[in-house]
Simulated scan of single mutants.
Amino acid sequence: MSDAPNTAGQAAKYLIDAELDVERTRKTSLEARGLAVITGSGTLVTLLLAVAALAMGKDKQAVSGWPEWILALSVLLFVLAACFGIAVNAPSRYFRIDPASLSGLITREEWGEPGQDAERELTAARLAELSDARIRNEKKARRVLAAISCQVVGVLFAASVVFVLVLR
């Protein structure tokens, strides 16, 4: 017997299962990116502040004026980026098929019946799971994008202050 679907329902089941696998993989990838943003933000803040301290040296006064404000804004952006990264990894309840709801499908009476109704119900449940996963992953993707955007602007701001300090 071939694995190829021979009915519209089987084709839908096949597609839904494949898309659900994609969303599960996407969730893992987005969460990994969120963790990378957290780590990267901490490293960049440390590195840029160290460069600023070295650039000022012992003889120079502390940062003041607009470079001070831009540096503070840069640190704030890195903190925001880390917060978005944390939000991406915050536990959330994805819709999952409740195993207890499947117990009716494994009774002796059901086991001998043709499986079209059960297959249709299970496919509908996987479709609901897919819809929920896609919505939650879109939220995670927007948070990752916001985190990376904050990091980029933070790097530009911090680098501009370090550049000004080096030229002093």
Rank of each mutant, 00 (worst) to 15 (best):
S2Y: 11
D3F: 15
A4R: 11
A4H: 09
A4M: 10
P5S: 02
P5W: 06
N6I: 15
N6P: 05
N6G: 10
T7E: 06
A8S: 14
Q10D: 02
A11K: 11
K13E: 06
Y14T: 15
Y14M: 14
E19F: 09
E19Y: 10
V22T: 14
V22Y: 14
V22N: 09
R24N: 07
R24T: 13
T25I: 11
T25H: 10
K27F: 13
K27T: 15
T28P: 10
E31D: 11
A32K: 11
A32R: 08
R33D: 08
G34A: 09
G34M: 07
T39E: 00
S41M: 09
S41V: 00
G42T: 05
T43I: 12
V45H: 08
T46D: 06
L47Y: 14
L48T: 06
L49Q: 06
V51Q: 09
V51G: 11
A52M: 15
A52G: 14
A52D: 11
A55D: 04
M56A: 15
G57V: 07
K58H: 13
D59V: 14
D59L: 12
Q61I: 12
Q61K: 12
A62K: 08
V63S: 08
S64H: 13
P67W: 04
P67Q: 00
P67L: 05
E68I: 09
L71W: 03
L71Q: 04
S74Q: 05
S74V: 04
V75T: 09
F78E: 05
F78Y: 14
L80Q: 08
L80T: 04
A82P: 03
C83K: 04
C83T: 14
C83Q: 09
F84Q: 01
F84S: 04
F84M: 07
A87F: 12
N89V: 10
A90I: 14
A90D: 05
P91A: 03
Y94C: 00
R96G: 01
I97T: 01
A100V: 15
S103M: 13
G104F: 01
L105D: 11
I106H: 10
R108Y: 14
E110L: 12
E110T: 15
W111H: 15
E113D: 07
E113G: 03
E113N: 09
P114T: 07
G115D: 08
G115V: 11
D117T: 12
R120C: 01
E121I: 13
T123A: 01
A125F: 00
A125R: 02
L127E: 11
E129D: 01
E129F: 00
E129N: 00
E129S: 02
L130H: 02
D132N: 14
A133L: 01
A133P: 01
R134S: 10
R134K: 13
R134L: 05
I135D: 09
N137Q: 01
N137R: 00
N137A: 05
E138T: 10
K139A: 13
K139M: 12
K140S: 09
R143I: 00
R143N: 06
L145D: 03
L145Y: 08
A146R: 03
I148D: 04
I148M: 05
I148E: 06
C150H: 05
Q151G: 13
V152D: 03
V153L: 08
G154R: 08
V155R: 03
L156A: 13
A159Y: 03
A159I: 03
S160Y: 03
V161F: 02
V161W: 04
V161E: 01
L165H: 05
V166H: 07
V166A: 08
R168S: 11
R168Y: 10
